[in-house]
Design a protein around this nucleic acid. Structure first.
Lengths: 128, 128
DNA sequence: ATAACTGTACTAAGATTCTTAGTACAGTTA
DNA sequence: TAACTGTACTAAGAATCTTAGTACAGTTAT
């Protein structure tokens, strides 16, 4: 379901959050679908249940999931809002990168060319 | 010279490194130019000298500056390599963002339009 | 030589964050 | 009742960042 990279500098609970949200956006996890329990996911990923609990708590705050005591945790309906939030975050990061590009005297044209190259690079991979 | 944001989650020594490198790339700090001493910069930024020492040590490892015991720390000659390294780092980050954009079903066209908008937005600001 | 500066190298302690371990309790379901 | 759910704690360990203090070696101007 999710993979954790212990060499990653980012904390585990953030990796779990990102993993769940990515699967939700991809449609692998559908609205109202039940998530693994805190304990079972912890077992599966070989990490502490408290860490999963923290991730689920944050996911609930963000509105990605909702939890019911005794029943379980479930994907929320409003995945549209989730995608919008992630899109907003992405454009913020993009703004930072553009500013850095300006500092490095990278022209708009060079920048756009690079993006097109990156975009098209994976098309080859998809064909393989 | 440099500004430190204590609310920033990024460690202070990294902010110092980035500050020095940005000034070097901008040309504000020129090759062979002497940097503030460890102690004076610490005083100026109201942080501990050890933190500046750590930043300078890292900057020396990266080849951005060089230090001579008893004399001081100076900007290196090879700023070209520095810009190249930063450019490489930038394109790596850009690759990550493009992948995220694909996940969010953002088309290449929308992505490019957004970048053009960001690039041109600051032109207005520059005219003011 | 002396004083005042430079970089450099330590140790120690505090603060913060992340993670684990363990326990406990309330609600649900078969 | 048993076995599962979420939830809420406390405590401790690990890692990282920062500060504080001390010390030593090299440079420079007086």
């Amino acid at each position: 379901m999710i993979t954790i990279d212990l060499r990653d500098k980012r904390p585990i609970y953030l990796q779990v959050i990102e993993g769940i949200e990515d699967l939700t956006i991809k449609g692998v996890l559908k609205p109202e679908e039940q998530l693994p329990s805190v304990r079972s996911l912890a077992m599966e990923l070989s990490i502490n249940p408290n860490t999963i609990q923290r991730a689920y708590l944050e996911l609930e705050k963000r509105g990605t999931i909702y939890s019911i005591k005794g029943k379980g945790s479930f994907i929320s309906e409003n995945n549209q809002a989730l995608a919008a939030v992630k899109k907003e975050e992405l454009f913020t990061s993009l703004g930072d990168i553009v500013n850095e590009a300006k500092l490095l005297n990278i022209s708009k044209e060079e920048f756009l060319d690079k993006i097109i190259a990156i975009y098209d690079k994976d098309k080859e991979g998809a064909d393989k």
